[in-house]
Amino acid sequence: MSSKADKQAALLAYVLRLGDNALIIAQRMIERVTNEAELEEELANANFALDYIGQARLFYSYAGKLENKGRSEDDFAFQRDSREYCNFLLLEQPNGHFGDAIVRQVLFESFYVLQLEALTRSSDERLAEIAVRAEKEVRYHLRHAAQWFVRLGDGTEFSHARVAVSLQNYWRFATEFFAADAVDETMRDSFDGPDLKVLEKQWQLDVSELVADASLSLPDTVARVDGGRAGLHSEHFGYLIAEMQHLHRSHPGVTW
């Protein structure tokens, strides 16, 4: 059993990971604004990205409290370097076409909704509160993305082939969701957090069902991807945060 300080450090790391996931997927989603195929999708994409920014702000504000060093949500978002960001690598991958965006959403949100659902039962009250709100939002996103996933998979020959490639390309990134480390174990053991083994089984079932509904086949896992939670990113990430942070960092200490 780890010390109280260790537990608190794990909780802080975990909350930051949640914030990083939310912010980085939001950043990729807002890159898509004004590029959607339909006006209704502009609304949906912007709306969902807005939910994620809201979640990032809640997680970062809570992280600031847990850390107790006076860091604000913006300090976490704009003043950390790439190695300090601990999001899943899937979320930082550059945007491709609409099918790529949908597959990313389906794979991640099928996991995230389970993670949040488990966190609503966490013994950490604040985290559980945030999870209750976020879970509702993400469940709705996932329903929307899943509908598109099925439409694309079971649409035209072209869309079927295209989304099959997206699934093949992104599949390996999902392995990272379930690679439990010490932080995940502390969350499970000390804060009634998710058991990733249980989540993985459920995720496999949920995603398999969706893939079947979309008339697609599950890809073979060719390689495992890991590193995001240790701050080991893809090369794309440096550009993402450079763009996101440059204005904030160019004017130290001011308010906006």
Binding site: E38, H97, F98, G99, L152, G155, S159
Partner: peptide
């Protein structure tokens, strides 16, 4: 670039 998406939705 959205044409294939609209076509897929229609076909579905």
């Amino acid at each position: 670039e959205g044409a294939w998406v609209r076509e897929a939705a229609e076909a579905y």
